[in-house]
Amino acid sequence: MAAPRLSLGPLKEPLGLMRALQWFFSIFAFATCGGFEGSVTYRVTCEGRENHTVTATFGYPFRLNHAVFQPSLTHLCNHTWPKDVHLVGDFSSAARFFVGVAVAAFLYSLGALGGYLGYLQVYRCAGSRLPLMDLVASGLVAALWLVASSAWAQALGHVRAAAGAPLPHCPSPTASCARTALTAMGGLGASVAFGFLNLVLWAGGSWFVYKETPLHRPAPPPGPTPAPM
């Protein structure tokens, strides 16, 4: 294996710069989605009794049907609720897929950038298959970003609707249930935006990888033929 020749020169070229941007913005994608924690709070007023506040906490991976309101509603309003009340919906598939793609993109862009910085002479040598492999991988990651971002954008709409829905099984006039607090989900909206930004970066970066492949670079012309004697 060839010895590495560390050089920061690739960072000044579109090939290396795009990898650095892909690495940087993939961090924001999985951090804004995977690091989210929120809650929804309701004030429950029972007829002729004091008010109570119940809260359900939720976050990544957004299995809302596991988020239980606390303290238990079964003890309120003369046992109006026969069992614990959960939020509705399981959106873990889309959320985990999105974060998984972000982590994979982070690792690949970091590895590819390290390869450019240390082994660019091997990457660009005649007959190297590395650019073609890099192109296939880049196109695959771009496609995954498209699918993951679209799926997560749709799931996020359902998360917002489920978290903002009225408290289930709140009978009137026996009890009244008013939502008093709901964590803002602007960070989750930003995760969708970062997802589509990463899609643009990977699709655009694929063009610069393509320019390194034999598909774009013409084969070197044959050497001069010797003159007949």
Rank of each mutant, 00 (worst) to 15 (best):
L132N: 09
P82A: 10
C46S: 04
E50H: 11
F106T: 06
L73Q: 02
D84I: 09
L146Y: 10
T57R: 00
A95H: 02
L113D: 03
Y42T: 04
P168W: 06
Y116T: 09
G111W: 05
F91A: 11
T74Q: 13
H52M: 07
G35R: 09
G111S: 13
C33G: 14
Q121C: 07
A94G: 07
V99Q: 03
S39Y: 00
V44G: 04
H66D: 15
A105Q: 10
T57H: 01
A137I: 08
T32W: 01
G164S: 15
G139A: 15
F58D: 01
H86G: 02
S93I: 13
G111N: 06
V88D: 05
R43L: 12
H52V: 13
A143I: 07
A102K: 03
S150E: 09
H79P: 00
L87D: 00
D90K: 04
G114Y: 03
A165Y: 14
G89M: 11
E37M: 03
A165E: 11
F98Y: 10
Q154W: 13
R129Q: 10
F62S: 01
C125D: 13
L140P: 09
L146E: 10
L146K: 12
V99P: 03
L167N: 01
M133T: 10
A104R: 09
F69H: 01
L73G: 00
G157R: 02
A165L: 14
K83T: 14
L146F: 14
Y108V: 12
G118C: 15
A153E: 07
T57G: 00
R49A: 15
Q121E: 11
S138E: 09
Y108W: 13
C46P: 04
F91S: 11
